[in-house]
Design a protein around this nucleic acid. Sequence first.
DNA 1: TCTGGGGTCCTAGGACCC
DNA 2: TCTGGGGTCCTAGGACCC
Length: 423
Amino acid sequence: MTPIFALVDCNNFYASCEKLFRPDLAHTPVVVLSNNDGCVVARSKEAKALGIKMGIPIFKIKQQIQQHGIQVFSSNYSLYADMSDRVMRTLEDMAPRVEIYSIDEAFLDLTGIQSAVSLIDFGRQVKHTIDRWIGITVCVGIGPTKTLAKLANHAAKKYTATQGVVDLTDRKRQRKLLALTPVQDIWGVGRRLSARLQAMGIHTALDLADTSAKSIRQHFSVVLERTQRELNGEPCIQLEQIPPTKKQIICSRSFGARVTSRIQMGQALCEHVTRAAEKLRKEQQQAKLLTVFIRTSPYQNNTPQYSNALSAQLSRPSDDTRDLIQLSMSLLDQLWRDRYHYAKAGVVLSDFYDIGTYQAELFDQPSIHTNSRQLMNVVDTINHSGRGQVFFARQAVKKGWAMKREHLSPAYTTRWNGLIQVN
DNA sequence: TCTGGGGTCCTAGGACCC
DNA sequence: TCTGGGGTCCTAGGACCC
């Protein structure tokens, strides 16, 4: 049976989540900012119509914000994650196999459902259900490969006549749409590849589809070869229902205000390590390698720059926050240079092992923490209870460098005191 | 003054071994 | 002093994604 994929993608997801709880903003332009209130990461359709570009730093559009009364929100990830859960659970009820691809996108495996319902009807049903149950607008793209489903979704968003659902299983329709699509709009083709492809005279998706796979493999990598094959309807990328275990965990942040003291840097880093360790335990993994990096702002040309990273192995894989903090602090000691204005720091955990599988070497020291598992369990349980926080002595109580979030909306769906009131 | 965060995969090149 | 080729493993860097 030929496989059929659908891609369901929420429209302007973060902006839509914010609007959902603010009916008064139904027709107002809305933008959502990145962490630290840095850049625009989501725009409502009204904001897009005003020409607000994705990724632009907020300070560059101060004037437009004033002039057009654009509503600005700091990102509110607990709200978006909760709304995402609702959308994904609904999809899982409707389709036999679902791959959650990102916070606002999912691939569905629709292979075989055509005998029961037309693909386009199914797509409309999905769209209607999510709209009615959750209040989020989605577009649905359907095709014989993931890359074509992505492309169909792109078309569903772009051409309003489609009413948000495109079935691209027909070969003739595929070629028609490919001819209309610039090569840089293809999933897997970014700025760099697109420039190289253009230089070779490959301008549209159809041009790429009609170039031989062999020639693509010669000039580029196996990744683009797969894209070329997928554009021709040959599936190379499978549906992944179960997310593969992570290979690394990164926790980093830009500071709300520049950091100049070693003490503050240590506190900030401890926060990141603590979060990273929590994620690690949630993955049920232990890490053996830890990397710390600190840097000044690359945008400040007039001040001295410093950027450096250092890695070290733990004597044995660990998920104990204390081990990770200890190692990261000794790395920071080596990395730290006085007199710089630091803009960002972070930690990377890697080289993961399943708990209990590591073969200890002959002269390895046994862990000094005999109660590690129980203690970390208690810490995680308390911190997730919503009733209080336990933290490590190194973490700061007063955080001068903390992230800027000046336009945060309430936690409408995950905290009682964020519940919306109807008067 | 103010420019995000978190991931994956692939390749090339060097180190090292036989 | 001259000198080969093939294989593996690791890492850094580049490219992409949302």
